[in-house]
Nucleic acid binder design. Sequence first.
DNA 1: CGGAAACTTGAAACCTTTCAAGAGTCGTGG
DNA 2: CCACGACTCTTGAAAGGTTTCAAGTTTCCG
Lengths: 253, 253
Amino acid sequence: MTSFSAQIQLAQQASQRLEVTCNNCGFNTICFPRGLTQKEVAELDDVVQRRKVLHKGEYLFRAGDPFHGLIAVKSGSAKLTYQDENGNEHILALLLPGELLGFDGFSANVYRCSAQALDTLSYCELPASQITQLCQRIPPLFKEILRHAGDALEAQREQMVFIKKTAEERLASFLLDLSGRYGYRGFSGHEFSIGFTRQELGNYLDLALATVSRTLKQFEKEGWIKLQGKKVTILDSDNLQKLSCCGKKSASA
Amino acid sequence: MTSFSAQIQLAQQASQRLEVTCNNCGFNTICFPRGLTQKEVAELDDVVQRRKVLHKGEYLFRAGDPFHGLIAVKSGSAKLTYQDENGNEHILALLLPGELLGFDGFSANVYRCSAQALDTLSYCELPASQITQLCQRIPPLFKEILRHAGDALEAQREQMVFIKKTAEERLASFLLDLSGRYGYRGFSGHEFSIGFTRQELGNYLDLALATVSRTLKQFEKEGWIKLQGKKVTILDSDNLQKLSCCGKKSASA
DNA sequence: CGGAAACTTGAAACCTTTCAAGAGTCGTGG
DNA sequence: CCACGACTCTTGAAAGGTTTCAAGTTTCCG
């Protein structure tokens, strides 16, 4: 690899490593402050612990840890995992910049899942200890948190629906979902990284590693996408869309 | 069927049709009031709309309806469903007496799912319009609601884990889950109704109707359970347990 | 009692997994 | 700058679990 292409890659990475304050956050419309007044945002800004950095493989929290707060990913990505009775890891979610996690901690004041950085990751945290009193001082924040908790439910429901599809449909749905989420955050929805390895992706979609590889390659041959390791370029979202909805198998009433 | 056995069946149904006030609710330890003082419970009792009754097939709410409140099932059972882009219905949950639903409404002030009575059902409702102010008057209620929202996430995570298993494991897990939930509410954990038809159960577990029927019958032949239509009697929970965890297939990292 | 709906059961078809070997990629050290 | 080893990814063929299709049985309800 030439140093020139190395620089390009570096620049691409850097473009996803924005660092922001809550007050002037590129994600602020989708993060906590939505629906709050300027003053309330400022007040919130004092409480939120900002811009912590983790390296690949490090944990934001582990299953069993006492619930310490809600987290917003600022840059990089993370996976949410759950270990079953047999010690098998199940990947429940991929978290992109601007997305929130930690809501499962409300249930028993303990995290039930683990959250692990998939690459270098920075994040902000709203400490659990302050949430209650903060919500009393800033009533709209209560609704915001509830809304985000609802979003988390939504996201999981979404996954439960597309885990019932065929391999092709799942992969197509996954790519489109990711594309939409990147786009929603102002990143490119056409060219992005699937933060997962093929193995992890298989785990997430409940497909064998080999099936993921095969199906992805098939998409590439059809001309729907272009692959370069974890980087994906969406070439024909229309056909992916068609595939993701109108595949062969579908659950019925 | 003789009128005698008809009476017996009626009695069994009636035993699951307890009607209670929030203040003196058989479910109060698991419903809203947990963690609240007597006075707060009384205050809550004024606001909660109590003991509405629905017949089989009627809806508690439909996808798209404006969010009108959180609901606690008092007697009977309900299913939570979601319709995908192709109009296919996906069953996301079975709700038993004492269980709560409606949290997905927080996301956008609109229900994203539908909730439908599987048999005659009574329920209470905490109106959405009052939740915010109520939480300000009764701070612990805020935590309670958040806790239950976390529980809803938990339940969905649980399903996502066991949808990745083999047919046998899924059915065994389902039966044990149900058993535990009935037991937790003071009902019999040994003999209960799976509120679903085989069709619905297949939809919920992502199995073909035929596979559900076959596998359930197999359990019966093995002597793990006894079947009488929708009624199940657990005869050997140990072996079911063994089957539900230690089956052949399991996802890996 | 009769018809409709729900359930059971068998056999063939199909998709995905498993197993296995080979190719590619990345980082480290010479 | 290239070589080496480890890890990830690709790809083929066989095995296996579920689905589909279809026919028969049971149950439910008017």
